[in-house]
């Protein structure tokens, strides 16, 4: 239970932290830490505008997206604290729940009959397909390191091991931060603040949602990002020792993920769109590399 509440809290704070980081780094004072909450409250108090092209599916998509994100969040443990639901193989379910929310959003976008949204949907589908192996090799590496296939038991068993394993853990966390950037639609893959429909990926698919629907989608994407960030934080928290990964450490690390995302957004330009595929495949390749690295280490070869 504590883990689920933590993910929800992280979802609330993370966007604020990212915004504040960007503001400070660009020399602004920045908006209130919880400005985005007020924005969503405003959205939820509005009505809705639907395009006559859209059908029932379009209206159901926000609910499905949010429900899939929240269900995925149920599986995420906060460091060593167990998740609300956990079972052997829950990593796979986690990945597929995120895929469900992505697929729902894509279908909703295609229902509007807009060429911009089709463009965004096409990109999102491709990027989603290319990042999937990265996510699964991340899981595979964790399974190889700990001998477990559930987040909760993995993070329970993941402890400070040899220096090699610390390096691998840091590498894994790095990979997952990249996954957060890709799945969350952040720079350098996608720019959440762009105003040009032609270059949007994630944002363009939400263009025709307004009011309550947009609010639900926004909350859903916060929870998705927070779940991934919590997994990243849990991974790297293990460096501080099995017992040392206290709640406070994990909190600080999730905040650190927010700061990193904000920093990247302040100093990097987004990729050219046709470079994105390469960028994402590189992340997946890196995950494969981490997997093989751990495998070679586990073989205990004596390389002279």
């Amino acid at each position: 239970m504590i883990s689920f509440l933590f993910v929800l809290t992280a979802a609330v704070f993370l966007t604020g932290i990212i915004n504040r980081t960007r503001a400070l780094l660009s020399g602004r004072k920045g908006v209130r830490l919880f400005q985005h909450l007020y924005n969503v409250r405003l959205l939820l108090s509005k009505g809705a505008v639907y395009s006559p092209v859209t059908g029932a599916l379009f209206r159901a998509v926000p609910a499905v997206c949010l429900a899939a994100s929240v269900t995925a969040a149920l599986l995420v443990p906060m460091g060593p604290y167990p998740a609300l639901l956990h079972f052997e193989g829950d990593m796979v379910a986690f990945a597929y729940l995120l895929a469900l929310s992505r697929a729902a959003l894509i279908l909703g976008a295609l229902d509007t009959g807009s060429s911009f949204e089709g463009m965004g949907a096409s990109r999102e589908a491709l990027y989603g397909a290319l990042i999937e192996p990265g996510l699964f090799f991340f899981f595979g590496t964790l399974a190889l390191m700990t001998g477990h296939t559930s987040f909760t038991s993995v993070f329970g068993a993941l402890g400070a091991g040899t220096p090699e394993m610390v390096v691998v853990t840091v590498l894994l966390a790095y990979i997952l931060v990249k996954v957060v950037l890709v799945e969350g639609g952040r720079i350098p893959v996608d720019d959440p603040r762009t105003h040009l429909e032609l270059t949007m990926v994630h944002e363009v698919m939400e263009l025709d949602y307004g009011g309550v629907d947009l609010g639900l989608l926004t909350v859903g994407s916060w929870i998705k990002t927070a779940s991934l960030a919590t997994v990243a934080a849990g991974t790297i928290a293990s460096v501080f020792g099995q017992g040392g990964a206290s709640a406070l450490t994990v909190c600080a690390l999730v905040a650190a993920v927010g700061v990193i995302v904000g920093t990247v957004e302040s100093f990097r330009a987004r990729n050219r769109l046709n470079r994105n595929a390469t960028y994402i495949v590189t992340v997946s390749a890196l995950a494969l590399f981490a997997f093989l690295l751990v495998y070679v280490l586990s073989l205990n070869l004596n390389i002279e």
Binding site: G47, A48, V49, Y50, S51, P52, T54, T112, S114, F116
Partner: peptide, 11 residues
């Protein structure tokens, strides 16, 4: 609340 209809956003 108002649930309005408006054409798909076409830029």
């Amino acid at each position: 609340r108002t649930v309005a209809e408006f054409p798909t956003w076409g830029c």
